[in-house]
């Protein structure tokens, strides 16, 4: 697989605060890479560095296998982006916004504008001044501007920010069809996992400037498989007893036993074992966890050991 984005030890410090700390991002050809993290985790700073809008304090960025620091212009020719809030000229119409940038990028084909307007669903509003657009329309225009230069890589920072559920759905559908429609690689950031879950195939999670997870989304989903929680009167000795049997048991914050297996026979064996050891069994229950829970666990640093 060709690496589209590759960072090594990418770091950004502002005075004494480290906003992005030694992160190694890896995005491959054809990926929809979901870049997740709570607000203020360092997503936007990272994306701004990927576009060369700000300079890293330390570390390297390679885009399309080329060093960004030395090939910024050549790289940006193949990148479309929407950073944080959509950028546009409010005194121009939607069509004129695209037309201005079409001229700037020297795209000969004038039909490309209507094609883009159709893709982002703004064909009917193309002659309206952008200042009269709704937030969702502005976001879509922003994506349209990003797509205009037929990029090979699309970087979208919180493209669903401030949108209502219907708007989010529209943007999601639009982004999902991009790789198949134009064969492009997409990096999209968000603080809401469920948004990314429905389109990304690879996920990177950033928290406090650290990349705490990066893998295929299936790996993240696996972590959401159900598990068994057992509450006993003395969880420490219960843990010791079960560990002697070679079972992988952890404790959660409520001092309950956590077992990542749900095999009936195994659970019944464990229950018997604990009772034989004269421990009082209060509850045995199955805990189903959503991806949101996993995300929260990862980003709040709680229960890291059991993941």
């Amino acid at each position: 697989m060709t690496k589209i984005i590759e960072t090594s030890h990418l770091t950004k410090k502002y005075k004494n605060t480290t906003v992005v700390d030694e992160i190694n991002i890896s995005v491959e050809q054809g990926d929809i890479y979901g870049f997740l993290g709570p607000n203020g985790a360092g997503k936007t700073t990272t994306i701004r560095m990927l576009l060369g809008l700000i300079k890293p304090t330390k570390g390297d960025i390679k885009v399309f296998g080329k060093k960004l620091a030395d090939n910024r212009m050549a790289i940006l020719k193949e990148v479309g982006s929407l950073v944080e809030y959509p950028s546009f000229y409010a005194n121009l119409t939607g069509y004129e916004n695209l037309e201005a940038i079409r001229r700037l990028l020297r795209i000969e084909d004038k039909h490309r504008i209507n094609e883009i307007l159709r893709t982002v669903g703004l064909l009917n509003a193309k002659d309206k001044l952008v200042k009269n657009y709704s937030l969702g329309m502005k976001q879509r225009l922003g994506i349209g501007i990003a797509l205009l230069g037929s990029p090979n890589l699309l970087i979208l920072d919180e493209p669903t920010n401030g949108l209502d559920p219907a708007g989010i759905q529209e943007i999601r559908e639009l982004i999902k069809k991009l790789p198949s429609l134009y064969g492009i690689t997409v990096m999209i950031s968000s603080h809401i996992l469920s948004e990314i879950d429905q389109m990304a195939n690879k996920v990177g999670i950033i928290n406090n400037g650290n990349l705490i997870f990066q893998d295929r989304i299936e790996v993240l989903r696996k972590k959401s498989s159900p598990r068994i929680i057992i509450r006993v009167n003395d969880s420490e000795s219960a843990q010791t007893i079960l560990k002697k049997d070679g079972l992988n048991v952890a404790l959660n914050s409520k001092k309950e036993l956590v077992i990542n297996e749900i095999d009936d026979d195994l659970i019944s064996y464990i229950a018997e074992k604990l009772m034989m050891s004269r421990l009082s069994l209060y509850r045995i229950y199955e805990e189903k966890r959503s991806l949101e829970d996993i995300f929260l666990d990862l980003t709040t640093n709680k229960e890291r050991d059991i993941l």
């Binding site: 060369g52 950028s87 000229y89 230069g149």
Partner: peptide, 10 residues
């Protein structure tokens, strides 16, 4: 409306 950001990322 973020014109600098737009231009600088072109």
């Amino acid at each position: 409306n973020g014109g600098w950001k737009l231009q600088l990322s072109l």
